[in-house]
Write a protein that binds this DNA or RNA. Structure first.
Lengths: 280, 280
DNA sequence: CAGTAATACGAAAATTATTTTCATCCATGA
DNA sequence: TCATGGATGAAAATAATTTTCGTATTACTG
C-alpha cells in the first residue's frame, strides 16, 4: 500500500465522521478517485465538496487536485515496486537481507514521491539566510540532528544540537527572527522536541519540522513542514526505515543549501577533511 | 522514455508551430508540468491556454488535467536502477532530489549485492554471544556507531561507544576474549578507529570491521570483515550515500541479532508508534 | 497577382471545478 | 438549560479549463 493510502489509514481514527466516510471511500476505491472530480466524489462518499477540500489539506496538499495527482503517481508506482516486507521471527538471514533492502529502498523512493519541492525550497532558503540554526531531536532523531549538525559545521554554518532536552529549550529561548529551528521526530509527537520547537517559534525563529507524512503536533508548530513517507500500519520497523528516509531528506536539504556555492564549498569540505588529518 | 513523452516526440514533426513549442517545453521539463497550471504553462512555453488545451486533445486526453494526471503516473513509474549521479553546482532542486534518490538507492542495492552472508552470520553470532560490545568510529562513522549503540541498549545488550579517541582505546584495552569490537570507517584508514580496533584485537576480543569494499588497514585487523559498496571514484559525496549503506548493514546485523526473539523485542523498539496511539 | 479557402492562433466568454465563507446544527460540558 | 466550539454543507467567490469566435496568416487557384 502506498504512502498516501497508508497515511490515511493511520490517521483515520483521529478524523471527524465525514472525513472518515471520505477516507473510507478513498481507501476502498483509490483508482476510481483519480478519474473523478471533487463533486462526484462528494456524492459517492456522502460528504460535501467543502469537506473533501478540507480533507485533502489534512495531508498538507494544496487541494483536491494535488491530492489526486500525488495519488495517481503513487498508484502508478505500486504496480512495479515491491511492497514493504515485514520482518518476522526466525527468518533465515537471506530473507532478512532482502527484506531490509526492499524496505530501505521503498522508504527512500516513497519519501521522494512525497516531497513538496516548494516547501523544500523554502526550507533551504531559510537555512541559507539563517544567522543560527538549532536542531532538535531525541533518540534516533537526535542522531539525525547530529548528522546534519556535522554537515553544517563543516561548511561554516553556525549550528547547535543538544541531546539534553533542557538545553534544547534553553537554546531555543535565545533564538531570534533571523534564526531557524529544525525539529525532527518521526511521529511528530515527541514532547521534548515539541517543547523546543514551540519555544523557538515563540521567539520568532523560522521553524521547520521533519516528521512522517500527515498531521501532527510538530507540524502544526512549523512554518515549513517536511515529510518522510509513512510505513504501513502494523509494520514492524524499529525505527530503521524511517531513519533512512530522514537522512535522505537531510541530504537533499544539505545539497540544496550548498548547491549554488558548491564549487566554493567542496574544496572547503575537502580542506576540513585535510585539516583533521593534519592536526590529529 | 515513458509512453506519453515518446508519443509526443514521435508526433512532433507533424505539429503546428505553437504546438511544437509546447511539445518542446513538455519534453524538456516533464516533471515541471505536473506542478503547473495551464496558464503558467502557456506563459512558459510561449503558447496560449487554448492551444495547450487543443494540444492535449491531440493525444486523446479529455483535457489538460487528464494529460497532467497521466503524465504524473508515467513519470512515477521510472523505477530503473540508474547509475550514480554526481551532484554539481547550480542544479535545480528537482535534479538534486532525483540524484540523491538514485544515489541512495544504488548505495543500498549495491551494498546488498556485495554482502557475504557467511561473514554476516559470523558477525551476528559473535555479537549474540558477546559479553560486551565496543563500537568505534569518528565523525560520520561515529554516528553510525551511536545508532547501533542505541539499538543494542534498547534490547539490553551491554555496549559502549565513545567519540573521544582516548576513551575508545581505554575501553578497548579492557576487553577480553568474550567481547566483540566493531570498527566503522568508510575508508578503513581512520587512525583513531584503527588504533582502537588494534588494541581490542591484542586483548583477544573478536574484531569486526565495516568499511568500503576492498583491502584496507581496518579490514586487516578484523576477524570478520563487512563491506559497503564503493562509490565511483571522484564522486562528490560528503559522506552521504556511504552512511546510508553503513546503516543498511547495521540494520541487517541488528535484525539478524534479534530475529529469534523478534516478537518479544520489536514492541519495545517502536517508541514512536506507541506515542501516537497514546496522544490521540 | 488577386482572390479565396483553409488553418493557426489567442482573446475573451462560457463553462466547469475548486475553495472559502458563513450560517446552521449538534454535541459537550458548565 | 444554556453557552461554546467544532463539524458540516449551501452557496458565494474564486480559480482553472475549455470553447467560441474573430483575426491573421499561409496556401492554393485561376
Amino acid at each position: 500500500m502506498p504512502g498516501i493510502l497508508s497515511a490515511i489509514q493511520e490517521q483515520i481514527d483521529t478524523m471527524n465522521p465525514k472525513e472518515k466516510d471520505i477516507a473510507g471511500y478513498v481507501l476502498a476505491h483509490p483508482h476510481h478517485i483519480i478519474q473523478m472530480g471533487i463533486t462526484e466524489l462528494a456524492q459517492q462518499s456522502g460528504g460535501s465538496t467543502a469537506t473533501i477540500s478540507r480533507f485533502c489539506k489534512l495531508f498538507h496538499f494544496a487541494g483536491f487536485t494535488e491530492f489526486k495527482l500525488k495519488l495517481a503517481a503513487e498508484l502508478a508506482q505500486q504496480t512495479d515496486t515491491q511492497s514493504y516486507q515485514d520482518i518476522v521471527a526466525g527468518n533465515p538471514l537471506e530473507r532478512i537481507v532482502s527484506a531490509m533492502e526492499s524496505n530501505h529502498v521503498r522508504s527512500i523512493t516513497d519519501t521522494t514521491r512525497m516531497l513538496d519541492l516548494k516547501q523544500l525550497q523554502k526550507a533551504i532558503d531559510a537555512l541559507k539566510s539563517a544567522r543560527q540554526i538549532d536542531l532538535y531531536g531525541v533518540a534516533t532523531s537526535g542522531l539525525i540532528a547530529q548528522d546534519f549538525y556535522q554537515k553544517l559545521i563543516r561548511i561554516g554554518k553556525r549550528a547547535v544540537t543538544f541531546s539534553d532536552p533542557h538545553m534544547q529549550v534553553t537554546s531555543a529561548s535565545n533564538l531570534t527572527k533571523q534564526d531557524v529551528a529544525l525539529g525532527i521526530s518521526y511521529s511528530g509527537e515527541t514532547s521534548e522536541t515539541i517543547a523546543a520547537l514551540r519555544c523557538a517559534a515563540e521567539n520568532g525563529a523560522t521553524t521547520i519540522s521533519l516528521t512522517k507524512f500527515g498531521t501532527n503536533t510538530l507540524t502544526s508548530l512549523a512554518d515549513i513542514s517536511l515529510f518522510t513517507s509513512t510505513l504501513e500500519e502494523g509494520m514492524r520497523r524499529g525505527d530503521m526505515a524511517s531513519r533512512i528516509a530522514q537522512l535522505h531528506v537531510i541530504d537533499i536539504l544539505f545539497v540544496g543549501l550548498i548547491s549554488d556555492q558548491f564549487d566554493d564549498l567542496v574544496p572547503r569540505l575537502e580542506q576540513s577533511f585535510q585539516m583533521v588529518k593534519k592536526y590529529r
